[in-house]
């Protein structure tokens, strides 16, 4: 389990978290390579289907990163996303996955260090939870070992 490197899908808003990721890179900040970033025009685009599909395809953790509350480029997209993420937590719990595998974060495009911090913390959280039972790649590798 100690060599477990989770796959974390991060749905990032173009106007904040995606910019923050860019800034983190420009600032030469280190954050885990486990992240698979998917850019969204706004977190208001997120639906439970997107999040579930990520888990279905074997993601060990998924998070949505949107603008600070009150700062959404489209006025309230991030406020639309928040209850959807919470609702999806219940959906994955029904399936038998830990709701902690899914989270929503808020940050601005100027918060490069915060982006790296969130990435580190979340990846650490998923490492502690262990691989998702749906992560076939991990299970195939460990069976072969």
């Amino acid at each position: 389990m100690s060599d477990f490197e989770p796959i974390v899908v991060a749905f990032c808003c173009h106007y904040c978290a995606y910019g923050a990721a860019d800034l983190a890179g420009s600032m030469r900040l280190e954050y885990p390579t486990n992240l698979r970033i998917i850019r969204l025009p706004c977190t208001g685009k997120i639906t439970p289907v997107f999040l579930l599909r990520a888990f279905e395809k074997g993601a060990d953790g998924v998070y949505v990163a949107g603008c600070l509350e009150g700062d959404c480029h489209f006025i309230q997209g991030n406020l639309v996303a928040k209850p959807r993420v919470n609702y999806t937590k219940k959906l994955i719990q029904e399936v038998g996955l830990e709701p902690e595998r899914l989270e929503m974060f808020n940050m601005s495009a100027a918060m490069g260090p915060r982006f790296a911090e969130v990435a580190r913390e979340f990846v650490q959280r998923i490492k502690e939870l262990g691989p998702s039972p749906l992560n076939k790649n991990y299970h195939i590798q460990s069976d072969a070992a």
Binding site: L52, R53, F55, E56, V95
Partner: peptide, 10 residues
């Protein structure tokens, strides 16, 4: 459908 596939895969 996604939930069912995941639960049964599990």
């Amino acid at each position: 459908s996604s939930q069912l596939r995941m639960a049964r895969d599990k």
